[in-house]
Design a protein around this nucleic acid. Structure first.
Lengths: 214, 214
DNA sequence: TAGGAATTCCGTATTTATACTTAATTTTAC
DNA sequence: GTAAAATTAAGTATAAATACGGAATTCCTA
């Protein structure tokens, strides 16, 4: 029996392209497609595929959150992150949240097909290039654990406001807190995210899906 | 004779998907694909297609710059912006830089095919939804012209470095300029882009496609 | 080749952010 | 119900960014 695949991506063009591709594969079949995280969660209740191709940038939910939820609800389901983000940050993030594979849209079809088949067979799959970079970063930094430190609710809230061009003082007024408190949080954010300044915070906020500019 | 189309996108998956799609159209043929702006510019010297599908986020050049160059060099070539950015900002930006069509990847294949055929026939094409939003924004804001103030080459360069977490001092060293010069440019950037601080600059830099975080 | 835009830079201030440490309260989770 | 984590906030500095105005050169382009 062929591998049953579900696709989650808000880009119809990509979903349709993938369907067309899979049609030509004798052993792979697209059984469902979703354009949002909530649609996916609803759909999985009806029918469970073998493999899930999951985009990170979705309109409603962030990719890691979704991966965490889905892999917890359906431990047998193999998730492959399929995204345009080719950073170690995201690779790690997704693999640590239950994904079994990571493929970028920069990669060709053959890579994706290989990923689906390997992951279905129980293996893990990452693009060679990314895996190499990951290994290198592991060897370099032992303090990577610091980077893993998750952000608290308050920190995320403040990060969002920073990204929205508010100054510490304005954030303090908005949240009825002392300006010094915001400074503290901001300092923690810089530490946790290993950023140097506001620009760095913004970059990571975008990468984490906390803020959307586009 | 069928419509000759060239595709520029750094996502192999999308390029391959589009090729597969066009293969099934009797009147459309993909004659070339490129993964970067410079590859496109080289390729056009060899062979000129009828229609160009152009992604905005490319590794080397920004979309509007590329559109401007190509439409100037080859006025007969019809350019369709094919992107995941569904903002009026980008729509306007690309149409003002010589594009004849604008289609998002959120749209389905039928929309893209319609765009190609219409644009090839000499019409302009925008997604209905986006066009509606554009009209609405035109009615609202007459001060849009202020936002149009273009950035100079130097300003773009500095904006990129700001987004890359460099301080004024570091940028000054990097470019062999006085720190005061960078401060001046930074001030102009804030004025031109109507931003309040670094966070605002970053937001706009991302929207302009000058910086890519993801 | 003339005029305008772009680039470079300074003066002078003020505001904001960054760099740490310490520490008292709350909340949360097990 | 207790330990761990989060939240709040201060002390004490320094570094960096923002806010204009002004001005000299260089670069483009009509």
């Amino acid at each position: 029996m062929s591998i049953q695949v579900a696709v989650v991506d808000d880009h119809a063009l990509i979903v349709q392209g993938l369907q067309r591709l899979m049609e030509q594969q004798p052993d792979i079949k697209v059984v469902a497609t979703y354009a949002s995280g909530s649609a996916l969660l609803d759909g999985l209740k009806q029918h469970l595929p073998d493999v899930l191709l999951l985009d990170i940038q979705l309109p409603d939910k962030s990719g890691n959150e979704l991966a965490r939820m889905v892999s917890k609800l359906y431990p047998g389901l193999k998730i492959i992150a399929l995204t345009s983000m080719d950073t170690i940050f995201h690779l790690k993030d997704m693999m640590q949240h239950g994904c079994k594979g990571y493929v970028t849209k920069q990669a060709g079809e053959e890579v994706l097909l290989e990923a689906i088949r390997k992951v279905h067979a129980g293996e893990e799959f990452m693009e060679a290039e990314l895996e190499k970079r990951w290994m290198k970063s592991l060897l370099k930094n032992r303090k990577e654990q610091a980077v893993q430190t998750p952000l608290s609710r308050r920190e995320k809230e403040i990060l969002k406001l920073i990204a929205s061009e508010y100054t510490n003082q304005e954030i303090a007024e908005k949240l009825f807190l002392s300006q010094r408190t915001i400074e503290s949080h901001r300092y923690s954010l810089l530490q946790k995210l290993n950023a140097k300044n506001t620009a760095g915070l913004l970059r990571i906020a975008v990468q984490m899906g906390l803020v959307e500019f586009e």
